[in-house]
């Protein structure tokens, strides 16, 4: 479904991603962990199409199409969704109106009729119930004045509404209380399907306990330095990143050579 080959990316002349390789197949759940500043969000943003990042090498295919050639909106309509680590506040744009536009743009792209008001409302009610989304939030401007947790919940709500093929959740579990975390996990599990895939960026074991990822990857200095099963996350929780850094340290000379 998603195939990342040797992606290098830079911003403002600073190299951030240094050759990432990742294969995600339908039905799989992957987790990416890694220390602050290692490039996790950068990877998510590059996949979503943020133009500030310069892709200096590599390629990405999504459902067989060249992802990097597509506009952000086309990526979304092809079924890519990213829940942002820092969702932006957009004063003056009503959340409901925004989501309705998004849902119908996607339908239009796939040659489907726009949902009428009744059908849209029904869909919205259903998904609101799924993520315990408060109606009052939806009548407000996008994320404006939302608490940290409310913003994250809104991301998951949008994900539920848009039913993506591949969802990338960038630290959606950070800043959530225990109930909200359960809600997010429920929202994600609901999306799980043999034709869909999920990529979770996280620092914590908690969400992974709920979701039981098939693969865990460690991103460090812009490359995946370790991949494993869900037990890798437990190992990291226990030992921290130092053991990985130490391992890499041993091969630092070799790496410098490769760079």
């Amino acid at each position: 479904m998603l195939s990342i080959k040797n992606i290098h990316a830079a911003i403002e002349g600073k190299q951030i991603l240094n050759g990432i390789n990742l294969e995600i197949k339908p039905g799989e759940v992957h987790a990416i962990m890694g220390p602050n500043g290692s490039g996790k969000s950068t990877l998510a943003l590059v996949l979503a199409g943020r133009e500030e990042y310069e892709i200096t090498q590599g390629m990405v295919t999504f459902s067989g199409k060249d992802l990097l050639e597509m506009s952000p909106e086309d990526r979304a309509r092809e079924g890519l969704f990213i829940a942002f680590q820092y969702p932006v506040e957009i004063p003056g744009v009503s959340t409901t109106n925004f989501i309705k536009t998004a849902v119908n743009e996607k339908r239009k792209y796939h040659g489907q009729e726009a949902l009428d008001a009744v059908a849209f409302l029904k869909l919205m009610k259903e998904k609101m119930a799924l993520v315990n989304m408060d109606q009052s939030l939806l009548s407000r401007s996008i994320n404006e004045g939302f608490s940290g947790g409310e913003k994250k919940r809104n991301e998951i709500f949008q994900m539920a509404m848009l039913e993506p093929k591949l969802a990338i959740l960038d630290e959606t579990d950070s800043g959530l209380d225990i109930d909200a975390l359960r809600v997010v996990a429920k929202g994600v599990n609901e999306l799980r399907h043999k034709d869909r895939a999920i990529l979770i960026i996280t620092h914590y074991q908690r969400l992974l306990d709920y979701l039981q990822p098939d693969f865990v990857h460690v991103l460090y200095n812009g490359r995946i330095v370790r991949s494993g099963g869900k037990e890798l996350a437990l190992e990291l929780e226990e030992k921290g990143y130092d053991f990985i850094k130490d391992e890499i340290g041993l091969t630092a000379g070799v790496q410098a050579g490769i760079n």
Binding site: G49, E73, R77, F98
Partner: peptide, 8 residues
């Protein structure tokens, strides 16, 4: 960008 990533 946020709006575009939702398919708008």
């Amino acid at each position: 960008f946020y709006l575009r990533t939702r398919g708008i």
